[in-house]
Design a binder for these strands. Structure first.
Lengths: 206, 206
DNA sequence: TAGATTGTTAATCGATTAACAATC
DNA sequence: TAGATTGTTAATCGATTAACAATC
């Protein structure tokens, strides 16, 4: 536990967290490694092995208690607090992100939304009001924001990324298809459904 | 080449495809394994190894020609044709997806959009017009659609997924946080930025 | 007790990486 | 020639899986 998790283990634990959160919303109280496997496409043995590395969380013959397993995984991933993030872009995608429960469900709070279009300033989207783009650096500092989500066109993505980095953001979620140049201490996650689709199609076609 | 790719190799090749597509748009003609590594966070040796398993595509001292490497990877992934997909949900997220170039850039064509809201029928979003939900099964058959993208609230996601499966769709992209039950021959990809964020935060915090 | 499911072992396979000769 | 970068080897490490005793 003193050691850092490997990338693979951390990624899988996050996915278990998602399944458990949803299963709880559906009213379930217990879940088996086999059920988690069906939702995640991760082998059931691997799931049990991942979990048993941190303790004996399950009951033989019964499965895992969802509430207590959620707590254990949150402890392991150190994700029990609230995290503030900034959203850049209040267009259709930005609005969709801001009004989705996906982030709030996991303790992630969209603390500020920025847009360069003066017509959008002041609009309420989700639970926040769109702010002047010039206030970005102050908001990042004041609200202790380390994550920025880019919901802007590819043509503006690099500019916005540069501004986020200058403001002190360390993790960028890029929803455009652009490639971003950032310093080595900044992590970029580019979401590209087309890439995932090509890869899913390969396995369908072969 | 007669063998099926492993999941890991296919996933990485898809990501190289994305980087090459964007690098070409930026006017580059050559790229090194080191440059691809910077954009993908995949080790440069691994990239060269992945590619050299299929042929000698690079030039020592020079790098890879982007156009020809694109062609080679498309051949390996068998993704040279056009693919028709169906989009369910013409709300903000659906509109954002339909008007993004991300799919078109990779030869994926949003061939039909459906919504249950009668007020949206007939609206143009992206290059398509929103159709009556009741036409889903016919469109899937007529347009040879095997991929469905769900841009609906979590509360409707299972219903829409069931309808897609009944219509013959084999790959579902789920943009809601809901867990979906599908037959074993249907693949579900759930996109959850919050899960990725938790995992990125772990590595930032440790 | 009978059935179910965990926790764990053991074996295999693929991913990862450093290093470097080959060669453009 | 000098510098750069590929293609490939070799070694290590983590992921994956089947199998099954333990035990709820």
């Amino acid at each position: 536990m003193a050691d850092r998790l490997t990338v693979g283990v951390a990624a899988r634990l996050s996915r278990y967290l998602q399944v458990l959160t949803q299963a709880r919303k559906m009213g379930k109280q217990r879940i088996s490694s086999q059920e988690i496997a069906e939702y995640t496409n991760i082998n059931a043995t691997q799931i049990r092995r991942d979990l048993s590395a941190f303790g004996k969380f399950g009951k033989r013959g019964v499965g895992y208690n969802i509430d207590s397993l959620l707590g254990e995984i949150r402890k392991i991933l150190r994700t029990q607090g609230q995290h503030n993030i900034a959203l850049i872009g209040a267009g259709r995608l930005g609005q969709a992100i801001a009004s989705s429960p996906i982030f709030a469900e996991h303790g992630i709070n969209i603390a500020a939304v920025f847009d360069k279009d003066p017509a959008k300033i002041g609009d309420a989207i989700g639970n926040v009001v769109v702010s002047e783009y010039s206030g970005l650096a102050d908001a990042v500092r004041d609200k202790n924001i380390i994550v920025g989500v880019l919901a802007v066109p590819a043509s503006s993505a690099q500019f916005a990324a540069t501004d986020l980095v200058a403001a002190g953001v360390k993790i960028i979620f890029n929803y455009s298809e652009a490639l971003l140049e950032t310093p080595a201490d900044v992590t970029v996650h580019t979401s590209n459904p087309a890439v995932e689709l090509l890869y899913a199609l390969y396995f369908h076609l072969t």
